[in-house]
């Protein structure tokens, strides 16, 4: 079976700083993968390399078997048009929601469908309403983002990404900017997506979410995947002392016995 996301020997440097030092990762259809690691471990950069918000310095990324970029003289080259097409297949949700403030909730969810996918307004609208009801916000369709709570904004952002019918969804610390009482509604939405079989890769500090929802947890350290496997294994009895230190230091770490 072809992985939805196949990453081979991925490297990323910012100037002299090498953030990713050779990552190999497969994400299979319907899998929910959580990337853990302390800050600076490269987990967000890895996520952003999957939809090419950052261009890798070296390595290969395949989405459902399609190699991204063209090889020329041993180096990969990426054209804007190709990356734009790729990003319609790989949805992304951000820490700070990044909704378009000048558009209503409905327009936010319709925008990419109409402008990028070329769907008709009617089709885009019905699709948008479908996704908004999926995240439980169809009644907020005519509101502007400024009138929504943080949790609602984030769920709209999820609906906006889903409306493009992506093959995989990337979540970049999507609950980190939320008030604690709003975290639950967003995690619930993500859990529901995972249960519906959406393939997803999440950078998160919610260890509970990783434990209950993820099929696979990857622990990143200094630009490499130090340990990966089932959450029950990694989170309860990790091989590496580095991982146990991380988990111990994590104040939110509460696991059922």
């Amino acid at each position: 079976m072809t992985p939805v996301v196949e990453i081979r020997n991925l490297h990323k440097s910012f100037g002299d700083l090498e953030v990713l030092r050779g990552i190999d990762l497969d994400v299979m259809q319907g899998e929910a993968v959580v990337l853990l690691g302390s800050s600076g471990s490269g987990k967000s950069t890895l996520l952003r390399c999957i939809n090419f918000m950052e261009e890798p310095t070296d390595g290969r990324v395949r989405i459902n078997g399609d190699l991204v970029g063209t090889e020329r003289g041993g180096r990969m080259q990426y054209r804007e048009a190709e990356l734009c097409r790729l990003r319609t297949r790989v949805g992304m949700v951000f820490q700070h929601f990044n909704l378009f403030p000048h558009m209503t909730t409905l327009e936010n969810v319709m925008e990419g469908q109409v402008i990028v996918l070329g769907r008709s307004k009617e089709e885009a609208k019905s699709k948008a309403m479908q996704q908004l009801s999926r995240v439980g916000l169809e009644d907020k369709a005519p509101e502007y983002p400024a009138r929504l709570s943080g949790g609602q904004k984030q769920r709209v952002a999820i609906a906006r990404a889903l409306a493009m019918d992506p093959e995989v969804m990337l979540f970049d610390e999507v609950t980190s900017a939320l008030d604690p009482e709003l975290v639950g509604e967003v995690l619930k939405t993500m859990r529901q997506l995972a249960e519906e079989g959406m393939t997803m890769v999440c950078v998160t500090h919610e260890i509970g979410f990783a434990y209950h929802v993820a099929n696979k947890v990857c622990f990143l350290h200094e630009g490499r995947i130090l340990e990966q496997g089932e959450p029950q294994k990694i989170l309860k009895s990790p091989d590496s002392t580095r991982v146990s230190e991380f988990l111990e230091g994590h104040s939110l770490f509460k696991l059922p016995d």
Binding site: N51, M53, E80, A81, C84, R85, R87, T88, G91, M92, F94, H96, N98, L99, F100, E111, G112, I115, V116, L117, R160, A161, M164
Partner: peptide, 14 residues
Amino acid sequence: REQWEAGKAIGMNY
């Protein structure tokens, strides 16, 4: 910058 990223992330070009 986040607004640029949001546009990019749904496949919009520059």
